[in-house]
Nucleic acid binder design. Structure first.
Lengths: 185, 185
DNA sequence: ATAATTAAATACCGATCGGTATTTTAATAA
DNA sequence: TTATTAAAATACCGATCGGTATTTAATTAT
């Protein structure tokens, strides 16, 4: 998972996987399939271990919408900095790096990105039902916007941004929420 | 340029470049250097032909800040959809796909991303000097935020978003500008 | 202890990788 | 027209690519 995460699909060789897993090549093929199969399983593992816990926490959080979004995006900001693992987000990377990969891979990448969007859409709709968010707000558009912010954060992280800079960007993004006061307005 | 743009550094072989340029391999080496040199020159060419015209237009635009940013981000939204060329933005791609490339390449990628940020910072500072943007607004943070939105747009484009969806996201991002009224507030 | 089965490691496959030496072609000079 | 130079294409280099056949080692069953 980590090797594909940091080096991408084309940038990772089977020998790299042998080195990082300690398993010999025939073992990798016997247990996981070919290179693309391994990539998919690594990406799914990332989704289960890294992404899903965050979206589950977002969905389970009981509190103001703005707080929920801040917590979620702050956690992502922390994660993409990569103190304990490669920088960036494997799921977002997969969207860029599988632009010309097999259709099955692109499909998986899209579905994992869509899952993040759906979680945000759910949270936004709930807030709207609670009356916390105006009925006039378009939750589809807001879901698109907020689900795309992790890509913005990951991009800045790759360029060397620090976590506090990412958090400041999150605050700007949150100020786009209808009914939120803005810094400096 | 187009080949590296759509397939990335590791995903592009010298044979791919021979096929897409029509120049034989020794000619490529004699005229442009090795693979990394060619990538750098392709990326610089992209910057000159695709990115710089947009930032120059942004800097030259004489009108309200919000209009300037909308025009700029709409043009990027149109570009990353890729009707006439590969999807996404080569400069943003380079930030992801050169995570482990030579240091010279990463440096170039960072400087091109920084150029976009600087242009936005200039425009924001000008608006602040004109009194159009509150003195309390932090133009460094806003520059970070808006210069990262193209990555958000490119990511959505890779996932198959349509141009109108990207424009709607841009409108949300613009609503984070201090002093701009929000949809649905 | 021996035979049968499973697992894992070595060795190897053709193809392609990035990169060049060499030859052929084309253009210029005499 | 011939000699010289510049350019471009063919052929080739060792290394590595993704992927397997084969052999060795470790279990299990008898």
């Amino acid at each position: 998972m980590r090797t594909f995460w940091e080096k991408g699909f084309a940038g990772t060789s089977m020998s790299d996987l042998v080195a990082s897993t300690g398993m010999a090549k025939p073992g990798l093929y016997a247990n996981f399939g070919d290179k693309e199969d391994i990539y998919k399983k690594a990406l799914e593992h990332y989704s289960d271990k890294m992404a899903s816990p965050l979206t589950n926490e977002l969905l389970a959080f009981d509190g103001p919408l703005e707080t929920a979004l801040r917590r979620y995006l702050f956690e992502i900001a922390h994660s993409v900095i990569g103190n304990a693992h490669p920088k960036g987000c494997f799921i977002i990377n997969s969207g860029f790096d599988c632009a010309e990969a097999g259709p099955g891979l692109k499909e998986l990448s899209k579905s994992l990105n869509a899952a993040r969007r759906e979680a945000l859409k759910t949270v936004l709709d709930r807030a709207q039902d609670r009356g916390e968010l105006s009925k006039k707000a378009d939750t589809n558009v807001l879901a698109d916007f907020y689900s795309a912010q992790p890509a913005a954060l990951a991009s800045q992280a790759q360029a060397g941004a620090r976590e506090e800079e990412l958090r400041a960007m999150v605050e700007v993004a949150l100020s786009a929420l209808p009914g939120i006061s803005k810094n400096g307005a």
